[in-house]
Amino acid sequence: MSLATVKNVPYSEPADARWAELERWTLEACVLRAEGREAEAVRVLQERMPSLIRDWSAQCRLPKPAIQERLRRMFSEKQDFVARGLAQRRLITSELIARGRDIAASAPRPANVTSASGAGASGRSSAPVGLRQRVPLGDVVGMLDGLAEAEREARREAIWPLRSPATFAAAEL
């Protein structure tokens, strides 16, 4: 699902175009983090955000402390928003999986060359089940725990895609 269709949280501040873009990319970075796509999240934060922040800061004509405070509050709100959506999603999908209502997997689909993160237009239903965090080679138990969590997340994704309107609606509950 395109992020453009995701409903943004309303803010009291005047929402000029730069601010709206800032909100959108902050939300995107939070969602990427939640998906375990850390490298992409870092790319958004390092490559997209600085120029947006610079432009908005120049346009908004607010004093520096107010700029910093507004940005800090927006980052915090977006993080909380995604965290709430994820918590609801985890709760409900766990219940569904426990009741054995897991969605049956379809036939395997070969994919073109892709980053193993599964990013792309095809969505994440065919995303590889792999580690999202760093585990030292000597820690076989940690590796297996990480893979088990990756498989649980893949099941959650099959039932309730993280990037679905439902996640963002759940965040507003």
């Binding site: 193993a116 995303a127 590889p128 585990v135 030292p136």
Partner: peptide, 9 residues
């Protein structure tokens, strides 16, 4: 262990 970002297939 390689993460999903450390692999290509």
């Amino acid at each position: 262990y390689p993460t999903v970002d450390d692999q290509l297939s």
